[in-house]
């Protein structure tokens, strides 16, 4: 009897829903993280279906889902480039000074409220894992080193962690493999060194060597990599004296296809780390221990004779 009533009411009171909206909703991640600015995935699915002007605001969809949705709605949804979160602090408790013993809730935002946080560097990670707690995709974890780590394959770039971090040390960078400086300290080098052994010392070597002019650094500002200019050559990583520059994916090194190589030598001349050598008109070779996988040689080779070492 009750089932009958339920059945009837289900039919009677059913809400008309655009079938496309349902299909779009199925493609969205379903985490209801709110990064799109709407109250959950269903609300955004409704918006993007009903409003022909709406663009893809969900940062968490992958390319396949984006294409599927474009097909469902029959229009280009924009959006695109995927981002991942990057933690811009490498100050583990044994590398960075602590000012006092903090007693209180395990939440960085709350810890920041009492005496400004226990880490001596006022730009450093407080290490209580609020970013990890708020991540709707389980893409972060606290490491043994008391710093948060991002699981890049799970991170969708929704930006929840950025909002949660009281010290603003999380940055979104393109997941295609860009580099990023693991420090945001604005203290001048002398002051910073007293507090932390692994921060950016503003030496500027990275900015000097960057072949693309993508790095800016100042006396009171940690090195900053312009993600639009960065070509992921990785030269900065190899020269940084405090190893504070990190990357999303390990760069894949390259090798020369002997059959195709005409021995022109262009690759050797563009290589920023002098990893390619050879004799004119004979196949060149890549010194694997020096190669940083920047791929500049691939772009320049007229014979398409260089490829990445993908198994």
């Amino acid at each position: 009897m009750a089932a009958l009533i339920l059945g009837i009411s289900a039919v009677t009171f059913a809400v008309e829903m655009d079938p496309r909206e349902k299909a779009v909703l199925d493609q969205l991640p379903g985490a209801n993280c709110g990064a799109c600015g709407f109250a959950g995935c269903a609300a955004f699915a409704h918006e993007i279906t009903e409003n022909p002007e709406a663009e893809m605001a969900c940062p968490a969809v992958n390319e396949a889902a984006l294409n599927a949705m474009s097909e469902i709605l029959g229009r280009d949804l924009g959006g695109g480039a995927a981002f991942v979160a990057f933690i811009r602090c490498k100050g583990t408790p044994d590398q960075t000074e602590t000012r006092y013993n903090y007693v209180g809730p395990k939440d960085c935002r709350a810890a920041q409220l009492v005496a400004g946080g226990s880490k001596a560097c006022q730009f450093g990670c407080l290490g209580l894992g609020t970013c990890v707690d708020v991540c709707p995709f389980g893409a972060m974890y606290m490491g043994e080193d008391s710093l948060p780590h991002v699981i890049e394959s799970k991170c969708t770039g929704c930006g929840k962690c950025i909002q949660a971090c009281p010290r603003g040390i999380v940055q979104l960078i393109p997941s295609s493999g860009n580099f990023c400086v693991g420090c945001i300290s604005s203290d001048i080098s002398k002051d910073m060194k007293q507090l932390c052994k692994v921060g950016c010392i503003k030496c500027g070597i990275c900015a000097d060597v960057c072949p693309f002019d993508a790095i800016s650094v100042a006396k009171d500002k940690a090195a900053q990599i312009d993600q639009a200019k960065c070509q992921t050559c990785g030269l900065c990583v190899s020269v940084c004296p405090t190893s504070v520059i990190g990357f999303v994916h390990t760069p894949v090194k390259v090798h020369v296809i002997d059959e195709k190589c005409k021995g022109c030598g262009i690759c050797a001349s563009v290589c920023p780390v002098d990893a390619i050598s050879g004799i004119i008109k004979q196949p060149y070779t890549v010194n694997q221990s020096r190669c940083i996988g920047c791929g500049m040689c691939i772009d320049m080779c007229p014979a398409d004779a260089i490829e990445r070492n993908i198994s």
């Binding site: 000012r99 006092y100 013993n101 903090y102 209180g104 409220l113 009492v114 005496a115 226990s118």
Partner: peptide, 9 residues
């Protein structure tokens, strides 16, 4: 003074 405890009131 580094060993002091700090918490909210």
């Amino acid at each position: 003074m580094k060993d002091l405890f700090v918490s909210s009131s």
